[in-house]
């Protein structure tokens, strides 16, 4: 039963003035108790991985590939995937699903489109980096997609000379295709945004949501060093060019966002 504590008339504007008794009722509800031990361990592992990434992040350059007979099979598989992925896109499951159909490190939905699994490289998934199993796909009771994990950040170092004027076209051409071209490692690390975690922090600072998959390219923009980031969302793909030194505190956008058509 709701009880009504006596309150002086002068305190009517104060929060403790509550003739309904609801305040006392809410305050009397039991405390949820301490954070569960497994969650404490999970978050501690995430923090440790974040700390580790902050201290020692590296870019793994992609190796050049040569065209061979084995690629004929890959091409055939890609064609088959396109046959499945394109209809999926046309039925409204979003560009992330199409990227997933290329077999890249993007999120991959189930065939029903009702769940999503985030696959990220270990340098951008704190729990995974700490040896924790990736989270399983989850759905709400209504079948809505749940994005509880950060999206993948795949980084390459092509050294491509992008221009601001043609950024969308160039990025659309280069970063929306499967990684199959020869790429070179950067001569030296130039800044925070040249690591998966660093690029994610930079993009977060400029408003890109953490669940969105990102494909980054260490390159140049109008002759200056830049990181080109292709961000996928449910509504399409957007390109940003950021300074290699871009981070959570000093977000440096050189160009974009530009929609990829």
């Amino acid at each position: 039963m709701v009880s009504t504590p006596p309150v002086p008339p002068a305190d009517k504007g104060a929060p403790e003035h509550d003739p309904t008794g609801i305040r006392d009722l809410l305050a009397s509800l039991p405390d949820p108790g301490p954070m569960p031990a497994d969650l404490v361990a999970r978050i501690n592992a995430s923090i440790a991985a974040e700390q580790s990434a902050r201290e020692d992040a590296v870019v793994v350059p992609l190796r050049p590939r040569r065209w061979g007979w084995q690629h004929v099979g890959v091409a055939a598989a890609a064609a088959a995937v396109l046959g499945i992925g394109l209809p999926a896109l046309l039925t409204g499951t979003g560009p992330g699903d199409l990227l997933a159909s290329f077999g890249g490190s993007q999120s991959a939905d189930s065939a029903s489109g009702a769940s999503v699994e985030s696959r990220t490289d270990t340098s951008s998934v704190p729990g995974a980096a700490a040896g924790e199993a990736p989270r399983t796909p989850t759905t709400t009771a209504g079948g809505q997609r749940v994005r509880s994990s950060p999206g993948a950040v795949a980084l390459e170092a092509s050294g491509t000379a992008y221009t601001a004027a043609a950024l969308a076209t160039q990025a659309g051409s280069k970063l929306t295709t499967a990684q199959d071209g020869a790429v070179a490692a950067p001569k030296a690390r130039r800044g925070a945004a040249e690591t998966p975690n660093g690029l994610r922090a930079c993009l977060s600072a400029i408003g890109v949501e953490a669940w969105m998959p990102v494909r980054g390219d260490l390159a140049t923009l109008d002759g200056a060093p830049a990181v080109i980031a292709l961000v996928s969302s449910d509504t399409g793909q957007t390109v940003y060019a950021v300074a290699p030194t871009c981070d959570a505190v000093h977000p440096g956008v050189l160009a974009g966002p530009v929609r990829v058509r």
């Binding site: 954070m35 569960p36 969650l39 978050i43 953490a210 959570a248």
Partner: peptide
């Protein structure tokens, strides 16, 4: 919702870790 709360509080602490400068 315990599962949702777990995800949210984890995301929040990692966000705080990264955004401490703010």
């Amino acid at each position: 919702n315990r599962e949702l709360a777990s995800d949210c509080v984890q995301d929040a602490f990692i966000s705080a870790f990264r955004r401490a400068e703010s």
